[in-house]
């Protein structure tokens, strides 16, 4: 079981260090101590996925299993990055979970039909992550 989970790589696009910490701890709680990467904004995220710029060394490596995406980030925000991902044939298959600050915000984004697989309202807790993982692994 652990072995299987080990194969899961998670990319978190989040600029807030507190939230990064909380995500990391929540993932630890559900014993998902696998490969976890963080990027701080949309541009870094795209570079990471396309193995460009600072992430050129990632060339040849597979895409992460899941992307946890915060929409409010500096430089390039989550919405813009999401648009690029969803229009790029190479990236389109990547499951995306959007992190929102409130349930109301989630309701709004749902109506935009951004091609998002799921939403998690911050703070990312053990319970929320666990249920999300259950959904995603069923894909």
């Amino acid at each position: 079981m652990t072995k299987k989970k080990n194969s899961i790589t998670i990319l978190v696009a989040e600029d807030d260090p507190d939230d990064r910490l909380l995500v990391r701890e929540a993932l630890e709680d559900i014993r998902l101590c696998n490969q976890l990467n963080f990027v701080a904004d949309g541009r870094e995220l795209i570079d990471f996925l396309r193995a460009k710029g600072d992430y050129a060394d990632r060339a040849g490596q597979p895409l992460p299993s899941i992307l946890l995406l915060d929409l409010n980030m500096p430089r390039m925000d989550g919405r813009e990055a999401l648009k690029i991902i969803k229009t790029d044939p190479a990236l389109r298959q990547l499951p995306v979970v959007v992190l929102t600050t409130s349930k109301a915000e989630e309701d709004i984004y749902r109506t935009y039909d951004l091609g998002v697989n799921s939403f998690i309202t911050k703070p990312v807790t053990f319970v929320a992550l666990a249920s999300m993982m259950a959904i995603l692994t069923s894909y």
Binding site: D18, L22, E25, T101, S102, K122, P123, T125
Partner: peptide
């Protein structure tokens, strides 16, 4: 909401 959320989250932790 932002800082409050964190107070809640870390309080919870």
């Amino acid at each position: 909401q932002e800082p409050l959320r964190k107070v809640q989250a870390f309080g919870d932790r």
